[in-house]
Design a protein around this nucleic acid. Structure first.
Lengths: 333, 333
DNA sequence: CTGAAAGCGCTTACAG
DNA sequence: CTGAAAGCGCTTACAG
């Protein structure tokens, strides 16, 4: 088959110059209809598809963007329920814009280097970094190199890098307010890891909302896994056997907490009301079904893609976009 | 900053030709140590990173491969538990080989076109297609175009495209054998969708194993979702109220079936033994914990990547690789 | 509206 | 061991 056809061959077949073929391919309006037709026929007959590398070399664009997920994050099962949704949202929006999605799982510091080199090699027009632990230096260093970069979730520490996040603080406040309003008076919380912004903010929301009431805070910390939720719940029961409600910073931890409560002979919601966060599928199937805070997961992915595309296109974008969360009332509270 | 530095600038700074810089960058052994050092210094000082597009244009390689997931598949929650594992496995192996992963969610037939064009534009060195429904024409058409392509899961219908799959038939037989050996005599099954190879093969395995015994088959079909598992279970109880065991073709459907059984007042495993397939996280936390067939998910991803890399490198590879499954015995059977 | 020509940033025979 | 030169397949001012 002598390799795949080139512009040159299409031009020859259509009896025009390469420039003209290029114009047709790129939809330039200044091509005579008859010529356009001839070129299109030649393209179809030859099955011509433009070589992206050649195009990128001259346009300096690749029409693809990288989505970086931290590998350690994908280990947390809670994230496993969230990250696929983000990937799907990003993918949908990118498809619509005819851009490609390059997925990079950042395992270690070593892979940070790989990612930097990759972005620097101009293989992508921009980078979305989702799901960070701690104060990851990657967003800032990419930003410093002049690469369009956007974070999913507010970066810890001061950072000039724009981000899209869900309203963790507001969601937590919603949950606690619901518990207060339903007459609970000893409201504990199981917080997430304090090196992740979702963990930090949901705990802050809890504290902020309690501050408005006369209730005192009762806190245990987990790591977003089911087991850690169960362990934290046992701890809380020891710390305050009289507690009558718990706001748990993730549904998965809430499911663990639910098991621990039932094992301790507490009825949910009669003795202890329980509110989770995330609204994962399993929340609906828990017994009792879990009241929780829903966050727009696919929506966050879409918004990330839209913002990055604008940024890569040279537009000014808001430094932060915060997506609303909502209370989903079920049986557990 | 006048754009990012080029080979040319490195050459000038190091006082050598572009050819020499290129040799150093690509690790050619025929460069004098002193020169090599000078070049490396210049590279470091300038922060030079090769432009991939330029490189690809001449080498005809991109060092990246595409992973295609069907979007409809990601809608099935059962797959949500499986696909991230495959992505992770592929990513691990590709990272080790310093290749990039381009993720494409194939939503519709329209996106099939996009994927073909993308592969044809030589933006990737090969394509892995995971998770197909029906007899998807994509693998064959890519193959016909001369693009290295590999399927996760055996393609339906005759196809020259090589594949990597888990032993669905063998796993199902293992499950049924376990039920037979534990003395069950009315063993039903809930099959998966019959347009997916996992659905078809697991049902075949059930039938094959029963054929060896004197037991008759009792069959209902679901679509791999939890709800469909519950519905199918209700159907089975109606069809044969005396059944004492069920092999369910996915854990998620098995969880639905478990609910339905308990709602119908049957004790598991006392009245009815239950075996699932997949070994997803939730199987371990069911009550009773679910006996199931474990498949190597990340392992399948890794094997896919390894095989595709070989294929793209021009090696001959086996037309099929079948990875073993195993029985994980817990409380439900 | 169309074409000739330069150039994007690399790699790789080919000489020397 | 090193360099000059050709060429990978496109796009885009610049003329006409």
């Amino acid at each position: 088959m002598a390799g795949r056809p080139t512009l040159e061959q299409v031009a020859e077949r259509a009896g025009v110059s390469r420039a003209t073929v290029s114009r047709v391919v790129n939809g330039s309006p200044t091509v005579a209809p008859t010529i356009k037709e001839a070129v299109e026929r030649a393209i179809a007959e030859l099955g011509y598809v433009p070589n992206q590398a050649a195009r990128s070399l001259v346009t300096q664009r690749t029409d693809s963007i990288a989505l970086v997920l931290s590998e350690s994050a994908t280990r947390v099962f809670s994230d496993e329920a969230v990250l696929p949704g983000i990937v799907r949202g990003v993918s949908q929006e990118l498809d619509a814009a005819d851009k490609q999605l390059v997925l990079m799982l950042a395992g270690s510091m070593a892979s940070h280097d790989r990612i930097e080199r990759y972005a620097m090699s101009r293989h992508v027009d921009g980078v979305i970094i989702a799901s960070m632990h701690g104060a990851d230096p990657l967003p800032n260093s990419l930003h410093r190199m002049g690469i369009p970069v956007l974070c999913g979730g507010r970066p810890l520490g001061r950072s000039p890098v724009p981000y899209v996040e869900v309203d963790n603080v507001g969601g937590a406040r919603l949950a606690v307010r619901h518990l207060v309003q339903s007459g609970r008076s000893r409201i504990a919380t199981i917080g997430g890891p304090q090196d992740m912004v979702a963990g930090i903010d949901r705990l802050n929301g809890y504290r902020e909302e309690l501050r408005g009431s006369s209730l005192r805070s009762i806190v245990a910390i987990g790591d977003f896994t089911r087991e850690s939720g169960a362990a934290a719940m046992r701890q809380l029961l020891e710390d305050d056997p009289q507690l009558d409600a718990v706001f748990v910073a993730s549904d998965l931890m809430a499911l663990g907490a639910l098991n621990a409560l039932q094992a301790a002979g507490r009825r949910v919601p009669d003795d202890v009301a329980l509110v989770g966060f995330d609204d994962i599928e399993a929340a609906r199937y828990a017994d009792p079904a879990l009241t929780t805070i829903r966050q727009p997961i696919v929506g966050q992915g879409r918004e990330l893609a839209r913002q990055l595309l604008r940024l890569a296109g040279g537009e000014e974008i808001a430094h932060s976009v915060v997506l609303p969360t909502e209370l989903v009332t079920r049986a557990s509270a």
